[in-house]
Amino acid sequence: MTPHSPGTGQINTLIWIGFFAALIVVLAINLGLFGAIRRNRGERGRVATQPRGAVGLQWRVAGVLSGFAVLLFVLGIIFTSNATSTPQTTSAGLTSYHGEKLDGPLVIKATGQQWIWRYNYPNGSFSYYKMVIPAHTEIELKLASTDVIHTWSVPDLAPKVDAVPGKNTKIFFRADAEGEFWGQSATLSGQAYAPMRTAVEVVSPARFEEFIAEQQKDIRKGNEGAEEIEAEKAGEEEEGEAGEAAEEGPAEESEESIGEGEGESNE
């Protein structure tokens, strides 16, 4: 995991805090255990002489452990609330949209279905498998599922979150670097669960506006000549490279072109 958003930076820090806490625990237990074993190995003729555990000693140990737990709890709350706080769009981000000023986050809807992610953009266009977002912009990702529980996860950009049918969830994040980031669903969702991956392409705000405009045009064209495109797509699919093909085309057709060319059908 290489964090590329303010939230995942906090998550990464918390993971390291947890790791060092775990390291302390493991070292304390095992050094204590093996030290005690080494000191008390059986010797012939020695008689066991046990120090007794006074109640006060137990309270002291419990006190130290409580302090440790409280510390972790406080750190956990601080970093978790930082990680889930809504990041503001910076000046380099998408500040206006279609000539109008963008107030608040850019809302994108992610819908999980067996076994691909569909992303709906504000202008009515959509894409499969890959989500394109502008950099330095606050994104509100609304999650929904049409069938079973899927977990949306792109670890470099945002926290994991379940898309549960009948429940609407949302997360906020902001990508601070351009590039392509991939993720994989993390809840067993049926046969093609393993290849149910997703990608997020972070582009400049200008390129983003271009992209969704193109996408909208393509979809309109696709709807008009759907049959023609369907025939074309069938030819494309035989050559593989379904992952790229999955970006375009209406929903009914893209169902089959699951990312990474798995081509599992849902029976």
């Binding site: 995991m1 918390l14 993971i15 805090i17 947890g18 806490a21 775990a22 237990i29 990680a83 994991k160």
Partner: peptide, 27 residues
Amino acid sequence: ALVMTSLGLAAEMQQSLVGAAFYLKGT
């Protein structure tokens, strides 16, 4: 058993931090 449970429970402790689990859960 003590060595193995100490490893497992320490890691569970790490993953019981909500923020850390936002990444580690499901892995």
